[in-house]
């Protein structure tokens, strides 16, 4: 019963914060709302017996990635005019997007409720996981079955770092001209 209550509270907070992210005018507020969304999601992950993912969610997502966001916001230091921009070029965009979004919610809801899932087939029931430990299982999987994607992910991150530096650094040659 406690679990259900926790789920309802957390999901409401998540949805509210998500709406806040989208409709806030100031990007800093959006970022803060997004952090809250992620933290609430981490609670839901715990409810789903995915403790490692929950921890990573808080540390990497809510921590590291969002720090970059806030950092960039501050780096650009946008004033109000720039945030507002010129007049809206697409007045119909907002209502159309909201209507489509509602339709999408309904559709996904229909899909999810109608969907029939086959029974549980895996060996990692919550009991097993609690016994061995979620983190240990994840680590074992990463270095056995998923070792190749794991290595590729490292290359991806490396490429992203290089790419980010190349993109963001000042173009010295151009300025010298």
């Amino acid at each position: 019963m406690l679990e259900s209550l926790l789920f309802i509270i957390m999901s409401l907070i998540t949805i509210a914060c998500a709406i806040g992210v989208v409709f806030q005018k100031n990007p800093v507020y959006s970022a803060v709302f997004l952090i809250q969304t992620m933290v609430s999601l981490a609670v839901l992950y715990v409810l789903l017996h995915a403790q490692f993912v929950a921890a990573v969610q808080v540390m990497v997502y809510a921590g590291a990635i969002m720090v970059i966001f806030v950092f960039v916001i501050m780096l650009l230091n946008l004033n109000k005019d720039e945030l507002e921009g010129d007049r809206n070029k697409m007045p119909l965009q907002k209502p159309a997007a909201i209507i489509l979004g509602l339709i999408l919610v309904v559709m996904i809801g229909i899909l999810m409720t109608r969907a029939t899932f086959s029974g549980a087939e895996g060996e990692y029931t919550p009991e097993v996981m609690d016994q061995i430990g979620n983190t240990q299982l994840v680590g074992k999987m990463l270095f056995t079955k998923y070792v190749l994607p794991f290595e590729i992910a490292s290359i991806l991150l490396f490429a992203a770092i290089v790419g980010a530096i190349v993109l963001a650094k000042k173009q010295i040659i151009k300025e010298e001209k």
Partner: peptide, 14 residues
């Protein structure tokens, strides 16, 4: 306008 294109993508997805 990028957002217009995004709207089209969403419409298609729906």
């Amino acid at each position: 306008l990028v957002r217009n294109y995004a709207l089209s993508i969403m419409l298609g997805g729906i």
